[in-house]
Design a protein around this nucleic acid. Structure first.
Lengths: 327, 327
DNA sequence: ACAATTTTTGGTATCGGTAACATGTTATCG
DNA sequence: CGATAACATGTTACCGATACCAAAAATTGT
């Protein structure tokens, strides 16, 4: 910056202002400085800026898994929403482990993010106190935690499942199995399971069977494997509620191979309204949770927060049953 | 840090060393300092560290699209490989636009990343010179550029397609169409298309028809739409080579709805060997490009580079035809 | 022409760590 | 016991931008 200043015969201070587009620098000086900086191949040092201003200019995001079309869609909405602001996204993946989330949050906080976006509403007590003491705006997402740390942009996994169970009940299905990850890791999956169990109970249906599809993240292959393991026992059920669309797709595919007819013999539902649900043949009944909208709303809340608005916001984007051909 | 130093009766320098696990600080002093820091709720300032040491401790990654299982898998391999090192990943998405890549690279460079990972081997001249002058190790991936900027971990999109065309030729297929994104945006897609065209020519097959599936990123729905637009004309072909597995899946699904039998009437192939290819029914013939391995190898190269090894490395992870039931 | 503004520019201290070097303190050994 | 090595800790000067305040230059009004 000093070099640029010398080259244009101005002080570094003026250069600093000019490069940030400060209006108090005269238009021609600004133009000259921009040009000179470019000519000299000067690269602005954001680290020094972050240090001096105590504002890092990025937002930290924790995702359970990067390889998940749903979170990816939220992330995309978020990126798009933040694009104009020049805010960058620092990403970390927790692999669905709260212990790892804790470590990750610690690392991310040390970088003084403008805000922290965490997926899910369940955290270790240690993580909670870290976040509470950090005085960094927190946005929880993909959930509606009972006791939020700050802002929330999400939906109720339980309620979403209530709609699914109600729908299956309306179709005359009674013997329901839920296929999802082993309990304890994927908290949103667990919430969905609980939602199913509770809804079935309220509707007077028999107890819901829980089919363990292995460790989160569960995907297509685990759906296949779960059905393989079920084998003939699949005849005990007339509806399979899957924790996500990929699982449902795997289930559907394996049913076909086993000559189990969907939806005649058994209904199958997914979650998330991924492309695969619509493109699949038959189309999978699923739940749209507005993943992209969540991302865009997060961006909105974020820009608001960075603007100095400290009032936490709670946004329920809701969810919507999407009827397909599998139920 | 000064506060912690005062609390333990040592200088800030000793605290600094202790917190970084410097062995020259006596074991008990180190323990005391860690404990005191934790008790005081001290949070280490990575920004200041980055500023002083001129090492940011993160690696920047540009991806064409975050919502893409291919890159996501690579990203996952990379995350896993870097986990222990404490290096963080700063992510940016270019939306398959080289102009955007340029802007993104500029922003990312301002943060002085330890290294920069860019997807693809084609960049604007401006971007190239930015990268060359930045003196930041660059790793290009998902490609084998003829004139690499630094290290490379990738595979040849062209060669991968040669295998596919050879296989189809062996099966007696002759009239091939390639389904991919509009030319110009997705350079890896373009490379694949060129690979198909060239291989067909070498084998003496008729000219390959190019079916435009719209703007990158193309996914399942665009596969569906492409086939819908083809309509009856699909009978002109006996093999459809798709730029990616999701596209192939969409194609397959729409073929089924149109009562076009795969593979009897027409062969369909994908690219990437992702879950959907194997779980799909019929299983999709595809190409495994070892996406996860790419990520892990990048991590390896990265750690090597950060260790001060400036020698660029060129790793070809190769690709492998995976026979399914659609060809 | 000159004071009162308004606009534009500059000087200085500083953000919180750490590299490099200096110094103090405790074992080791002939 | 004193010299030397090995270990532990301290001092100082930065890294590069910018907040804050001060001052110069340009513009305006009478």
């Amino acid at each position: 910056m000093r070099d640029v200043a010398r080259a244009v015969g101005r002080s570094p201070m003026t250069v600093s202002r000019a490069l940030r587009g400060d209006e108090t620098v005269s238009v021609k000086t600004r133009a000259l400085i921009s040009k000179t900086a470019a000519d000299l191949g000067y690269v602005y040092d954001s680290t020094a800026q972050a240090f001096r201003t105590q504002k890092s200019g990025f937002v930290a995001v924790t995702l359970p898994s990067i390889n998940n079309a749903n979170f990816a869609e939220t992330f995309r909405g978020l990126s798009t929403g933040l694009e104009a602001s020049g805010i960058q996204l620092l990403l970390g993946s927790t692999n669905y482990q709260v212990e790892k989330e804790n470590e990750l949050v610690r690392q991310l906080l040390a970088r003084k993010p403008e805000a922290l976006i965490v997926t899910g509403g369940y955290h270790l007590p240690e993580t909670r106190s870290l976040l509470e003491n950090a005085h960094v705006p927190v946005i929880e997402t993909w959930d509606l935690p009972p006791d939020p740390l700050g802002s929330v942009v999400g939906f109720s996994n339980e309620n979403a499942m209530t709609d699914v169970v109600q729908h299956l009940h309306d179709q005359g299905r009674r013997r329901i199995a839920f296929i999802g990850a082993a309990a304890g890791r994927d908290m949103r999956g667990t919430a969905r399971r609980d939602g199913v169990v509770a809804a079935a109970q309220r509707l007077g249906l028999p107890d819901v069977a829980i089919v363990d599809a292995g460790q989160a993240p569960v995907s297509m292959r685990q759906g296949v494997d779960a059905i393989k393991r079920l084998g003939k026992n699949i005849a005990e059920f007339d509806a399979l509620i899957c924790v996500s669309d990929p699982v449902a797709f795997g289930v559907l595919s394996e049913c076909k191979r086993m000559s189990v007819n969907v939806p005649e013999d058994i209904a199958v539902t997914g979650f998330g309204n991924f492309d695969v649900a619509m493109v699949s043949n038959p189309q999978i009944t699923t739940v749209d949770v507005h993943a992209n909208e969540i991302g865009r709303k997060i961006a909105e809340v974020l820009l608001d927060v960075i603007d100095g608005n400290t009032q936490p916001r709670h946004i329920d984007v809701g969810s919507q049953l999407v009827l397909g051909e599998t139920s």
